[in-house]
Amino acid sequence: MFPPFTTQASSVREIMFKVLLALLPGIALYVWYFGPAILVSITLASLTALATEAVMLKLRRRPLAPFLSDNSALLTAWLLALSIPPLAPWWLVVVGTMFAISVAKHLYGGLGSNPFNPAMVGYAVLIISFPAYMTHWLAPQGLGQLELNFMQQLGYIFGGHFPAGVTVDAVSMATPLDTLKTQLHSAHSMGDILQMPVYGNLGGKGSEMVALGFVIGGIYLLANRIISWHLPLTFLAALFATAGAFYLFDPAHYAPPLFHWFSGAAMLAAFFILTDPVTSPTTIRGKFIFAAGAGFLTYIIRVFGGFPDGVAFATLLMNMCVPLIDAYTQPKVFGKKGEQ
């Protein structure tokens, strides 16, 4: 046994578990506004993640029990499932999760060694490989042309077919961010666009409430000191500042900053994705740089890029910079503060 002989009762498992717990309010609101299909993709992703984790551990000759029970694979699965449309063929989420766990996590050395956020890698692979499936989001309840019941949704997810006469466009719709982009292209003004039924008070109808759910979870994580405030607040501030600057410059063509906060995966990113300790910087100054960069890039990709949301690519781009950021932001240690 090595000193210290006494330790605080904390574990990776517990930390990951609390993060999962913090996702629950968001998920509950998701179900409330968009129906239970999300639960199907979360379940699918979880099972796939655990199976892939087990196979990879076996291949890497690592013990199964401690790593399968650390909840980290589950967290990746949940984050990925929350990032992709729930009404999608089953293999979409399975392929994404398998890629995230096997390539983005284990090929880089497993827990603690992956430079990129596995869930975001899974998302990036899916959106590049299957862009068509990735844009069909469920309409919030009461907004779609017609609504499928749960059995019909299952039928599509696992059977790949809708009930007779129903097309995918009838049950799904573009995300608020996508709608904004296409509507701006057809020369509608920002004011008119935000009056459309897909929009709520702050962001998209329904999705803004889900984002709020993630905020509640984030506050729980902050209160439990699972995450520190530096990353989420800096990210949100940077996103707000960038969006605010553009909005002030031309309010007719750029959405207000609060809209960017509450649409897409901004809140999920702020509290759950950027805060992945493995792929974010360890120094305080580094955290500011990392999160500010992610916030800025998220806006740029959202507004000027070709993808529905910028969170994933912004995260991955900043993940890439983490070793550099860490190396250049080393704080002065005790007794060396006077040195230049």
């Binding site: 090595f2 000759r61 690592r62 013990p63 199964l64 401690p66």
Partner: peptide, 10 residues
């Protein structure tokens, strides 16, 4: 060098 669990192969 501390023997650590992660290096021990099953």
């Amino acid at each position: 060098y501390p023997e650590d669990a992660q290096e021990k192969k099953a």
